[in-house]
Design a protein around this nucleic acid. Structure first.
Lengths: 252, 252
DNA sequence: GCTTGCCTGCTGGTCTGACAAGCAGGCCGC
DNA sequence: GCGGCCTGCTTGTCAGACCAGCAGGCAAGC
């Protein structure tokens, strides 16, 4: 015989749960404004304090987003769900797990290799009914990299855009989401590594990186998944071992 | 000339941000109790309302967890972060239809393939100074699977333990953390797929799954990274296409 | 006509002070 | 030693109030 421990859930949690359910099952459609706080107080028969705490929870989960200083909260659509708090959650997880940079880089390799392989395969298997993924974004980013000679910030923006475009081209939202979070977590290290170099060395490094990007995009456009995966692996890992790892070692 | 739009952030958000930062950079260690609400009021010089809203946000993000009805919040560790709100976030995404289950499965394939490949490589490259990863956990889980004939719940527990042991053997914390979150959110679907089968069919399926696990573990123990990656890919993807995809199609 | 300014009514954001319920610790009488 | 009680903390909740900001209507002035 075993008794179950009594479960006590605070009122704000119950309010949040009901609202959450309404959002998830579509009773409250994306973009809709939630009822005003005082209105919710009346409907749930609780005080405004309670309602507000529930709303803060929903907001933190990304199910509702602020509609401005004096406007009611709006129901979030799926897009803001993946871009905002969920991504933050992954970043927090990685930060809180005190994950080593090398592990993050390896994860990024695995993700990006899978993404470009899938993108390339999609190109190879494209038909009229199922067109190839759009690589225009990636091409544009690559072009920006070429003209960003010496402009580290501009190059970095283009680099981010390039890799993001590739992952997006793979069409896997889950991989894209994790990829974004990983990049966020690695981002600061990458920046430091680039900025730490002399202008001349940096310029040479940028040219090499651009060349690698070029080869990668060509492989994808040609539908060569295996090649693309190998190139991106070498690219990411190469940059890490060449630029970041020595710095880390020196920092110790 | 371009002016930047004025950014106004509410007090509760600033409070939350500061607490979040303190948690993430370790100033507040996992398991610690946060200061009492009234204490925080004094430190931030805001009212209790504001503090409480900030705490609700942190709680919803999983960075702090309730320490009981009358106890202060406690700082969450990485493990509770991945199992709780992050998983919920992924589930919400699935429910809102933004991320297809197939995408998550593909992500899992990529992660797990990378992990087992690395584990196998570590086995192959093992030396006295750098011993091979410990596969005992995985062996134990596999043994449990063999004896769990027909016991779906037991099998599932063993399955989770097995895959988790493999990822852990790879020694990459980043992959492990993301893997946990992904598996948790796929978990429910896996369970449904297994339980939906008749006892006889399930028993056959379990035997096949066990055999696949066996082959996988052998490949890792033999240090054959490529083989292991291929096997795990087929294993995960195979189960999905065989068991889950048809159900999804039928549900529409 | 159009603009400008004001006024009103709504919103969220914040504060204050209060109370109940529950837990932990000490203290006391037995 | 042990049950019972009392005190002081905590969170959870409430009611009521105020401010700042936005939107809309409306009237005065060009």
């Amino acid at each position: 015989m075993s008794f179950q421990s009594v479960v006590r859930s605070p009122a704000y949690e119950q309010v949040a749960a009901q609202l959450r359910e309404a959002i998830l099952d579509g009773t409250l459609a994306a973009g809709d404004e939630l009822p005003a706080e005082r209105e919710l107080c009346a409907q749930f028969d609780v005080s405004r304090t309670t309602v507000r705490e529930a709303l803060r929870a929903l907001q933190a989960q990304g199910l509702a987003i602020s509609g401005g200083p004096t406007a009611p909260l709006r129901v979030a659509g799926a897009e803001s769900l993946s871009s905002g708090p969920l991504r933050d959650g992954l970043v927090h997880l990685l930060r809180l797990g005190r994950v080593a940079l090398a592990d993050l880089v390896e994860l990024r390799c695995a993700l990006e290799a899978a993404a470009v392989a899938r993108a390339a395969d999609a190109v190879a298997a494209a038909t009229a009914a199922d067109p190839a993924p759009d690589l225009a974004e990636a091409h544009a980013a690559l072009a920006q990299m070429r003209v960003a000679d010496g402009d580290l910030d501009g190059f970095e923006r283009a680099d981010v855009a390039f890799h993001l475009a590739l992952v997006r081209a793979a069409g896997n939202d889950a991989i894209e989401l994790v990829m974004l979070a990983v990049r966020d977590s690695i981002g600061a290290h990458l920046r430091d590594a680039l900025h730490a170099r002399s202008a001349r060395a940096a310029s040479a490094a940028l040219r090499q990186l651009t060349a690698e990007h070029d080869a990668l995009l060509s492989a994808i456009a040609a539908g060569e998944g295996e090649t693309a995966a190998r190139v991106v692996r070498d690219h990411v890992l190469g940059f890490y071992t060449a630029a970041i790892a020595p710095q880390e070692a020196a920092a110790r």
